[in-house]
């Protein structure tokens, strides 16, 4: 089954960058612009992985994570924090909620993909082999 990844970030550019990072892999990417919409999307789509920002308007990433962990159906969902916020208190709070993967912005695309691969496994998309002879056009 194709893994679903939910990207929750108030920056559309970051959500696009996350989608781009996983473009070479068999994934379904879902987007949310804050924690409140992120929870709705998580309940509707049951993602395998959530890539979650911390500082967001409406509902921040820490609150979304608390509510996620309080919901028995969503509690086991794997989470990677992707944030510019490296405040040690925030890192500790996130760790207490069972998240060990913390990617600090600015980030290397490969670092995010490697962490995601360890958590959910990623299968590269099949690429068309240029050496494969194409079907000759019908006369």
């Amino acid at each position: 089954m194709t893994p679903k990844i939910l990207s929750v970030d108030d920056s559309g550019l970051i959500r696009k960058a996350v989608a781009r990072a996983f473009a070479k892999f068999e994934t379904i990417i879902i987007h949310a612009e804050n924690g409140e919409i992120g929870l709705q999307q998580a309940r509707e789509h049951r993602p395998d992985l959530i890539v979650l920002d911390v500082n967001m308007p409406v509902m921040d990433g820490l609150e979304m994570l608390r509510q996620l962990r309080a919901d028995p159906a969503l509690k086991p969902t794997k989470v990677i924090m992707l944030t510019a916020n490296s405040n040690p208190e925030t890192v500790s709070s996130v760790a207490r909620l069972g998240v060990r993967e913390y990617v600090i912005k600015p980030f290397e695309e490969g670092d995010l993909v490697a962490k995601a691969g360890r958590l959910i496994g990623l299968i590269p998309k099949a690429t068309e082999d240029a050496s494969t002879p194409s079907t000759p056009p019908q006369a």
């Binding site: 920056s11 559309g12 550019l13 970051i14 500082n55 510019a84 916020n85 600090i104 912005k105 600015p106």
Partner: peptide, 17 residues
């Protein structure tokens, strides 16, 4: 919107560092 996001996110990353 991508340019605006770039400005916000770049400032966010700089403030973070």
């Amino acid at each position: 919107s991508d340019k605006r996001d770039l400005a916000g996110e770049m400032c966010n990353m700089l403030a973070g560092r």
